[in-house]
Design a protein around this nucleic acid. Structure first.
Ligand SMILES: [Zn+2]
Ligand SMILES: [Zn+2]
Ligand SMILES: [Zn+2]
Ligand SMILES: [Zn+2]
Lengths: 129, 129
DNA sequence: GCAAATGACGTTATGCTATAACATTTCATT
DNA sequence: AATGAAATGTTATAGCATAACGTCATTTGC
């Protein structure tokens, strides 16, 4: 089946399984289409599951793609950074301790209290450049 | 009238003027509604103008807001960073030389060729924290 | 000049992304 | 069992973005 994490509801597990199996970003509607055979019928079922998964840090939303991707780490000490290949669509998620520091400095200089960071880098991956 | 930059078409000038006057991010549809009295009627008129303005660097798209904001600089030597206040909606655009370097290092380590960077920081601004 | 190419424009229709609102169900706690 | 919290199911709607078509104006090269 694929119980990929404990304490997930059926819908949440379905959505997470699908994202993990894909390994690439999927839109909510792509997830919905993939899960119709499993009984999901409406966008809201997917969006609600995604909300919980994102809250738990098991899934990330990619703002510049309007898509979601399974987290490939156990936990995040640092801000996540996404390297998004514009040719093959691959997305590489990395922690960014150095960037974290630079962002903190920038925010401090502006007297800005950071809550969250969206950091998505577009370009060509190792294999496509 | 407000010819804010040379070489702009009528629609482009209308959209840019509106964004500059707002000083805050506006959605394409908010811009359209504001410009209906000026004769604009369809989303595509706004989106096309925005495309050109973004190409020229006169306007930035904020991915996490699905909105657009006028650039407050003459030109960009560095990647633009946006500090987005979640309480009052203010957006502060800054250059980020230090971050630029950290991003370059990260990309180099992954053998990734950077094309563009989306960097949007959410939190509380100076006045709202 | 004039034809071709280019780019902006106008319009209609369509598609993709996300949430509102409401009723119902499930499950843990008391 | 009663309560409350969270998840679910369903329908409808709102918000964001582009496809596809034809037209018009400007520029470029002959
Ligand atoms: Zn992650
Ligand atoms: Zn690639
Ligand atoms: Zn700018
Ligand atoms: Zn504020």
């Amino acid at each position: 089946m694929g119980a990929l994490a404990e304490g997930l509801t059926r819908n949440q597990a379905l959505v997470l399984d699908r994202l993990v199996a894909a390994g690439t970003p999927l839109s909510a509607y792509a997830i919905l289409d993939a899960l119709r055979p499993s009984g999901l019928k409406a966008p809201l079922q997917v969006y609600r599951a995604l909300d919980r998964l994102v809250d738990r840090g098991l899934v990330h939303r990619l703002e510049s793609l309007n898509a979601f991707i399974a987290c490939c780490h156990d936990q995040h000490d640092r801000t996540a950074v996404f390297l998004i290949c514009q040719r093959c669509g691959a997305v590489d998620e990395e922690d960014a301790p150095t960037l974290q520091g630079a962002i903190a400095d920038l925010a401090r200089a502006s007297n800005f209290a950071v809550d969250s960071v969206v950091l998505e880098i577009k370009g060509l991956c190792r294999g496509c450049r």
